Simulated assay, not measured.
Amino acid sequence: MLIAVTVVISRLFIIPVPMTHGNINLCDAGVLIAAMLLGPREGASVGAISGFLLDLLSGYGQYMFFSFIAHGLEGLVAGLMLSRVSKNASKIISLVLAVIIMTIGYFLADSLLYSVSIGLIGVATNLIQGLVGVVIAYVVGPKIVQLIKK
C-alpha cells in the first residue's frame, strides 16, 4: 500500500529538471515515512520499488535501476538508523544521512549516464527533494504512528 501511495504522491507533485534529465518529486517523503513506520526492510522495499515504478511511469527509464538502488538504500539506511535512536535530533540526523546516501546514488547515476558536471548539478536538486521529504516525514510520520495506535 505504501508503494502505491508513494508513487501516486510522487506523480502528483513532479518538477522536471532538464539539466539533469531527472525530476523533483515527493518520493523521498514516502520512502522515509515507510522506514520510520515499518523499519529497514520495508523502507528499502518501498524505496526500491516506488523509485523504479515512478521512473518507469514518468518516462525516465534510464534511471529505473539507479532509483531502485538509491531509494532502496535510502529506505534501508533510514530504517536501520531510526530503529536505533530515540531523540528527535538523532531522528533528523538519521533522515538527513539517508537522503545524503540517495543524493550520492544519483550523483553517480548522472555521472555515469551523462557526465560528472551533470552529476554535480543534480546534487542540489536531489538534496532539496530529499530535505523536503525529511520535513514531511518528520512532521507526518509521528502523526501516522499516533493514528495507528488508536
Rank of each mutant, 00 (worst) to 15 (best):
M1D: 08
L2N: 05
I3A: 03
T6D: 02
V7A: 01
V8R: 02
V8A: 15
V8M: 10
I9R: 02
R11S: 14
F13N: 11
F13V: 15
I14D: 06
P16M: 14
P16L: 13
P18N: 09
P18K: 08
P18H: 11
H21Y: 13
I24K: 07
N25H: 12
D28T: 13
D28R: 08
A29G: 04
A29V: 03
A29R: 03
G30N: 01
I33Q: 02
I33A: 00
A34N: 01
L38Q: 04
L38S: 02
P40A: 11
R41M: 09
E42F: 06
S45N: 04
G47D: 00
A48R: 01
A48C: 01
L53K: 00
L53I: 07
L56G: 05
S58G: 14
Y60Q: 07
G61C: 06
F65G: 02
F68N: 01
A70C: 09
H71A: 04
H71R: 10
L73S: 09
L73C: 14
E74R: 13
E74I: 04
G79L: 12
L82V: 11
S83H: 13
R84L: 13
V85D: 13
S86V: 09
S86Q: 10
S86D: 13
K91A: 05
I92Q: 09
S94M: 03
L97E: 03
L97M: 14
A98K: 01
V99W: 01
V99E: 07
I100D: 03
I101V: 15
I101T: 09
I101C: 10
I104M: 12
G105Y: 13
F107P: 00
F107S: 00
L108R: 06
L112N: 10
L113A: 12
Y114Q: 09
S117D: 08
G119V: 11
L120Q: 11
L120M: 15
I121L: 14
G122I: 12
T125S: 15
L127G: 10
I128P: 07
Q129M: 13
L131N: 07
V132W: 08
G133H: 11
G133R: 05
V134Q: 04
A137H: 02
Y138W: 08
Y138M: 00
V139K: 01
V139H: 03
V140N: 00
V140R: 01
P142F: 00
P142V: 03
K143S: 01
I144N: 05
V145R: 12
V145H: 04
Q146M: 13
L147N: 07
L147G: 04
I148R: 14
I148H: 07
K150C: 05
K150F: 07
